[in-house]
Design a protein around this nucleic acid. Sequence first.
DNA 1: GGCGGTCTCAATGTCCAATA
DNA 2: TATTGGACATTGAGACCGCC
Length: 573
Amino acid sequence: MSSIEQAQQLASEQLTGRGFIQYWPVLADLCGGIKPALMLGHAMYWTRGWLKKHPERGGWFWKTAKDWQEATALTPREQESARNTLRELGFWQEELATTPGAGNRLFYRLNIPELCNKLITAAKTKTEGTISRWDDAFLLSLLGQPIAYYRALADLSGGVIGGLVLSHLLSELRSAVLTKTIDADGFFPYSVEEQRVTLALGTKSQRNAREALKKAGFVQEALTKGQRPTLLVTVNLAAILALLTGKGAPGANTPAGRVARKAQTQERAQILSQEGNVTTLRGPIMVIDHDGPQTQTFVAPPSTQSVPVGGAFRHSRAALLSKRPGVGNSEGCPFVDSRAALLSALYTKPTFQKNSSSARERLSKRRVTNPDDGRWRSLPLPFDEPINPTSTTAELKAEIDPVCTKDVKQHDAVDERTVSSIATPVLDGVFWPDGIDVESARRVFTNVPAHINVQELVDELAGQMRAKSVPSPVGYLSTLVRKAMDGAFVPTRAAGVAEARAAKARYETALADAKASPVAEVVSTGSGDEIEHSNSSKEGIERLRAVRQKVASQVSSSLLSLASGEPDSEPQS
DNA sequence: GGCGGTCTCAATGTCCAATA
DNA sequence: TATTGGACATTGAGACCGCC
């Protein structure tokens, strides 16, 4: 299993363990918005449960605004708007009633027949007679495929729409892993329009949500170059996992940061793990593996407590990583600096560039490929100046997953021994910055111990040269080398330079993968500048859709089994 | 806990033009 | 062709408050 698959699975476990609700896009079409659809969809879940347990109540149930917010992430004001919409549509009844010992409570009841009739009209489904009671099979046939909306993601992304978009992206990521349309760095094809239609989003709200997610560092996007650009996206699973497990603090100006400030003393994990309103997964779940969907039981790992202090979450790791400023402004998750680096550090055996065959391979690829000739262009990424991860891989891994600490430490030890066995620093294949006398620079490393990371020092120099005027690059490099030998070298820009270089390599790799992939197969035309889908790629897309449909069907089955559970709270009156 | 009112301002929808 | 960016008018969410 690749690191991305592992990360995807871990994220999936974390998210499902924190609860999700079903979002039915068809309801959004019917209601004219996501928010009423979310309320309606979850009200159906509650109604179903209460009908089973208390059929004498005729479908009436009560919930507080807080209950709704915990389940859907809708604020009381948003709930109010959504309720107004649902009332106007005739799907929703409300009664304020005084209950002994509990004061006024707002009771709700769904108008299932009206809802079914509208769904029938919308779907142009022929039916005999009228629907007068709850009929699972029929209702579900009208609702179509649900989308798992991970409530926790709404908190991370600062709102319902962001949470929904991120939930959908995670679903797409899962499909991409399953269909192997994802590259080694986690990029997979994705259509903005398709997502908009699938989720029944407005163009503006989708745009805002995507921008927020990108700024927060949860997703990165890239476009293929050509007459028909294809959008690629990658989800920063490391960042999501870090937040979910309480191992990271959101940036002050990120949506998540604003939520954190607003939440103040409310523990996110505590809220999200609360029993009751959120569909908490207890039974088997479907785990996507290389061999296809399969069922596996897991126990959600306990949430690690973070300590909110003054609206922010204090954590040693977060404090360390938050030293790095955001790109262009103070926005962005501070711990998300280097998605690839973090992901790699978290889930893969650590490697050193000097001994990394893959690094060499990429190096050779770079040498034979003129980056300017590539079909890929990158969008501005929020990660171009990542911090240097000063923690060891083992420490970082231990924070996310203490169980694995021992193994990673062993990996570290093995690799460090390997590196130390090299007689002299390897200078072949080093990426030198423009504007430096390479021959003179190479001489700086004469008699330098083998453990010195040449590329890191050169990258630091490159970063400094980019940030400011360096009158004597060779002299500057010499100083860096001396500091490194004294153990006083603290890189500040090297990681950013390395990540930018890795990003270029990723796109080149993605291009190669896209060319080789049966789904995203591209063929060059005579001009050499155009990309178009071949017949085989169209067939591939059809296969992809079929597989997605199959997966969605199985997910739906799992959800249905969940939805058939008991009502989550007892009537109080 | 829920309702109703007020004020401010961010978010949204709808255009259209620009871009790759 | 798909996507982005911007302008502008409108909508509605947030943050209060007091009251039942």
